[in-house]
Design a protein around this nucleic acid. Structure first.
Lengths: 225, 225
DNA sequence: CATATTAATGACGATATCATTATAATTTGA
DNA sequence: TCAAATTATAATGATATCGTCATTAATATG
């Protein structure tokens, strides 16, 4: 994800940048209110982290400015301990959450993840589950009911896409674009074929057939959790 | 999990052992600094709990000794109330956290769980780099100097193993076990072959040949960062 | 310097995975 | 109920990746 960090204090800035990057994000930093506002208005970020006490303005002002331009990117405010009425002011200017300095890395990531999860796609989870099905992204491992199941690359990628959109209907065009990176119609039914492969491998280890067909619409990976 | 507890005070030792075991851990105890250090250096634990005031030395010394031997096992220090500068000293010797006596069982377990959680998923980095080389684990993407390079599964897994052990020499046996999950000698030079493949693909995009051969020992992925 | 040892790379057949096609099964709507 | 539309799966040939072997290159040692 693309993150904008607006913070003048070098030590805090470096820490925040490091933590975010370690968690797989692309970070852009700004050290003044002017610069931060400029970046925020002219680029698309997934989250913006704003310090309150900047040399040439404060985070609230930037946030207000951003919202006035109809930019809905989630904003996390970093506030110093002594700052008063942070919560109320955050609400007023349309910020999503705030974090009081000093904070530790886990706190920061927890807030960032909470906000982005709330606001959009679910981020980049490391473990995806759906009932008996579990995928560990880092190990690239798929288990059904605890037993490991080997998948080919295409099968794995397809399954991951379904898991990331579980309980949502995904159509063939979306699948082609996001799993195969194909942006045109190949006139073949390869997606049906791979859905079939997946079902077979899942069927071998559990009763439930998680992949549901929605005629004329696409497929859903269905489960209660 | 396997826990080492180094504590001379019998009542504290018994309590800690009982609490940990009740929570499903295997506990080994040592009552002197000498014994504790000996255990720590010659066995693999998931966490080490060290008392500061031991009859023949203190926890800080053991901790330092452990870290000097490149053992990264999380260490939790138990300190008496009157001990000064515990936090600073902990940082200095590479301990992960400390707990002031007296403490209650819940506190202890909370610390233990926090430490092991932190260290376990912090070990699974999402982005691995070495100079120009970058691997994004979740996207399963490899870039050299910013340009994407396609790798086969085996090539990718081998590269990841090298990255996870960058600047450390890894021998062929280790590679076989961790990348191919082969626990015997196949009598062939397949690892050399894949090293060769990797080098070729890296060479195509950058001058530096990151993979160094250490004759009779193995290979190193070398870089300054 | 000569030779033995170790590593690097080219080449090859076996196998796995790929996209596609053909055919079977299912669902829909007249 | 029956044909048309849609989806599921079996089958196939093409290609990529696999592990192995053979050969060449590099390095160490006497």
């Amino acid at each position: 994800m693309d993150v904008l960090v607006v913070e003048d204090d070098a030590s805090v800035r470096t820490l925040v940048k490091a933590v975010l990057e370690k968690n797989g994000n692309d970070v852009r930093v700004a050290t003044t209110a002017q610069e931060g506002e400029d970046y925020a208005l002219n680029n698309k970020f997934d989250i913006i982290i704003l310090d309150l006490g900047l040399p040439d303005g404060d985070g609230f002002e930037i946030c207000k400015e951003i919202r006035d331009h109809d930019i809905t990117t989630p904003v996390l405010i970093l506030s110093a301990e002594q700052e008063t009425d942070v919560k109320v002011k955050c609400l007023k200017v349309g910020a999503d959450d705030y974090l009081t300095k000093p904070f530790n890395p886990e706190e920061l990531m927890a807030r960032v993840e909470a906000i982005t999860r709330r606001s959009s796609d679910g981020g980049a989870e490391q473990i995806l589950t759906c009932g008996d099905l579990q995928v560990k992204m880092l190990e690239r491992e798929f288990t059904v009911n605890g037993t490991k199941v080997d998948l080919t690359n295409n099968e794995f990628n397809l399954l991951v896409y379904l898991l990331k959109n579980k309980n949502k209907i995904v159509n063939q065009e979306e699948i082609a674009e996001n799993v195969w990176d194909i942006h045109f119609d190949t006139q073949t039914n390869y997606i049906n074929v791979y859905i079939s492969y997946l079902r077979k491998k899942i069927r071998d280890h559990t009763e439930n057939d998680y992949i549901e067909t929605v005629r004329k619409k696409g497929f859903v990976l269905r489960c209660d959790d």
